[in-house]
Design a protein around this nucleic acid. Structure first.
Lengths: 243, 243
DNA sequence: CGCTACTTTGATATTTTTCAATCTTGGTGG
DNA sequence: CCACCAAGATTGAAAAATATCAAAGTAGCG
């Protein structure tokens, strides 16, 4: 088995697709694809390493590739006529993006950190799906997984209170931590406050006040701009769950 | 080709799956499944006819079937600890529901009107997917389609103004009208105001005031509880698009 | 060390929620 | 056929929360 384009660093190989099965047949935590299948996918993909703040594609531009995030963070967003911006999703390693609608991307995407991506031509993918049901099934599970996350988020946004929304966001990020990460109470915040505000549909100021409130109540401490330390998980969970 | 369980009435056959492809290869409006494939699906499915207000399954209950809506309307929802209810989706003919997470349904579902559903055992479906990539692909497109709708909704909910949210909802419903329907300006509202409020994450009162505002501004007239007549499509679209 | 971008804080305005009461409508039974 | 009932829907007034506008404070980076 040859490694293409040199030896990727740790965490930069084609990652397991992050998802849980929808049939109850897939055990959580078990990768959806065997390593053989992943190797097969690799043959189709081009690896890209890109710096932070790079626009991957624009809203409504013609869709040619599907992307798999292997390392780093990407945001998917839309700019509204009013000048507001809504972040549709943050994409972490193991996440897929670039699913299009009638041949056009729906959201714009931009790297937040330096990223490593695998890029697969959509027509190739369609062809592969025709011949490889197992591979397609992995994608189906993944998209289903993302659909559930989107629905969950819908419920998040239904909340009135800014602090509760932020709590849900932090718990969401915490859920994305790899088990290998050192301290599960340290939540890295790769994105800016402004990005979080756009994600939670809050004004930047409301977002800032919400984080101040979480600190005041002793649930979380924000250490610098890029780390949230959970101080009282029990109460943070409770706040995130409620409403 | 035999019709099982007698001759279904119009609109109660296994419907085309409502979706647009994500590869740009599927022409909008063209059914994802050939009639042969639909017939194949039929062999696996059980047809159910149920009255209005029937609970199809509870939140977090073990998932055994996937459902395809053939006729009528269903709501998918979650009840929150506070007693509030959030409607995750309204499901119309051609919609699929019952995608589970680790073997359990995520939302509860209830029929709004009398419905005709096709029910397919999940394990059967998994088996079929293994052997029939084309059929699986139709489902993949459908789930992708629903993911986009969920993301769009996320943006809807990000709006502050109740009237704008209601306008977006009405435009969404209008998009679901079949081309065969008589007057594209008559939007049937099968669900209650309360359901709409739960869908838009508004209080019932705010919902009511929002509809009053749309009427006052001459965009829509609500004729009885179950019909919205669009009076000024241009301005309604504008209101729905803005922000 | 200073610039620039990002973030926080303060005060006011706008909007929605909440609580309470009234009004409609559709269905039922006398 | 009509009156009544109950669920659903509307309206009003006060309370709570976020948006907005404005200004000051921080931190990262060259």
């Amino acid at each position: 088995v040859s490694k293409r384009a040199g030896s990727p660093g740790a965490g930069e190989r084609l990652p397991a697709i992050r998802a849980t099965g929808f049939l109850g047949t897939v055990t959580p935590g078990v990768p959806l694809l065997t390593s053989a299948k992943r190797e097969e996918l690799l043959q189709l993909a081009t690896r890209l390493r890109l710096p932070a703040r790079m626009v991957l594609y624009e809203e409504q531009s013609p869709a040619r590739w599907l992307f798999i995030n292997a390392h780093g963070a990407v945001k998917s967003f839309r700019d509204l006529p009013s000048g507001k911006r809504r972040v549709a999703a943050f994409l972490f390693p193991g996440d897929i993006f670039g699913l299009a609608e009638n041949g056009h991307y729906v959201n714009a995407t931009q790297s937040i950190t330096p990223v490593t991506l695998y890029r697969i031509p959509l027509d190739t993918l369609a062809e592969v799906f025709r011949h490889d049901p197992e591979l397609q099934f992995a994608f189906l599970c993944k998209v289903t997984h993302e659909l559930r996350e989107a629905q969950r988020r819908t419920i998040t946004l239904g909340r009135r209170d800014a602090a509760g929304r932020l709590a849900m966001f932090l718990m969401m990020l915490r859920g994305h931590l790899r088990v290998t990460d050192d301290d599960p109470n340290e939540i890295p915040l790769v994105m800016s406050r402004s990005d979080i505000a756009d994600f939670l549909a809050l004004s930047l100021e409301a977002m800032s006040r919400a984080s101040a409130e979480l600190e005041r109540r002793g649930l979380v401490r924000f250490e610098g701009r890029h780390l949230a330390r959970v101080l009282d998980l029990r109460r943070l969970e409770k706040l995130a769950a409620a409403v």
